[in-house]
Amino acid sequence: MSSKVTFSDLVGRIAEETGASKRVIHDLLKETAVVAQEGLLRDGRLSIAGVGIFKLKWRDARPGINPQTGEPMEIPGQNRVHFKPEAALRTFINRKYEHIKPEIIRNDSKPALKSKDSFFWRRRSALGWTAALLAFLLLMLVGVFSLFQQSYQRAPPVGEVAQPEATPRYRIPVEELTEKKEQIQPIPQPDLSPPSAGKPGGVHNIRQGDSFWTIAKAFYADPYLWPNIFRVNVEVVDNPDALEVSTTIHVPPLEGTVGRLSQKDIMNIIDGYMQAYLAYRRLNKTNAPYYLWVAKQYNVPEVLDRYKDKIHASDRDFILRIKGSARIK
């Protein structure tokens, strides 16, 4: 165990810190021991703030052997003092190791354990990243290369076209097209381009883990457009936060694309946000007014007018108090 501080040193330290005399501190600690014993005997438990909880745990009598004579005997039941340091003390003492998390051991076979000690295993995360980076660079190279090739090969057809009657003219573009297709494929576009616009719309069957948010992300590539889906499913969905598994919901298509929405899309989305507001208001959720606020931020009063009677006066006041918001009638 660790090296020790003698009791008198400890008393000295505390006396210095508190400004009380050594005698007082000495008595205090001694008396604490006496009172602690008293408390343990009376209640079986004792808590000291800043230290922890001491508890008596009864250990039942158990058979044993007298080590001197080898005779079987019964070890009588007795109390054991159990100490649990309080949480603050535990975390403080353990702070050096606190950041280390338990690590899952994938394979329990011997070789896996052995390979754990190797350089590559210890550096596996760094190696993984390096490998990913290398693969990415390689893809980029291939992409750039094929682009070059493409522009290089695009030139000859012009020459070919110029050649009279050697090949029928209409076939040349076809060849060019197929060539192009083949060459475009290796370009690592998925790595560079932002997520695609997603599916145009349709029907979705709710599975475990689905939410309007994830569905909007999958279909529109923009989860914030979820009220647009909720809008057309008001009849089947009561609470937009809790979808029932195996419900079929309709996902309306967007006229424009995300980032270039048409006027009708925007009207629909505002309508969606209003529906979300009404649903949350009906469920008495505190986030309801924020949906009203979003709907209003689009600044298309015609849609809001349609819901004029259903907007709560308190919510109207609430969103007016949000800084930087447009005026509402």
Partner: peptide, 18 residues
């Protein structure tokens, strides 16, 4: 006094002393 004592306990323990 008890509070300050427990602070000293904590400090002493943290230094690796018993």
């Amino acid at each position: 006094l008890l509070k300050r004592s427990t602070e000293i306990f904590k400090k002493t323990l943290d230094e690796g002393l018993s």
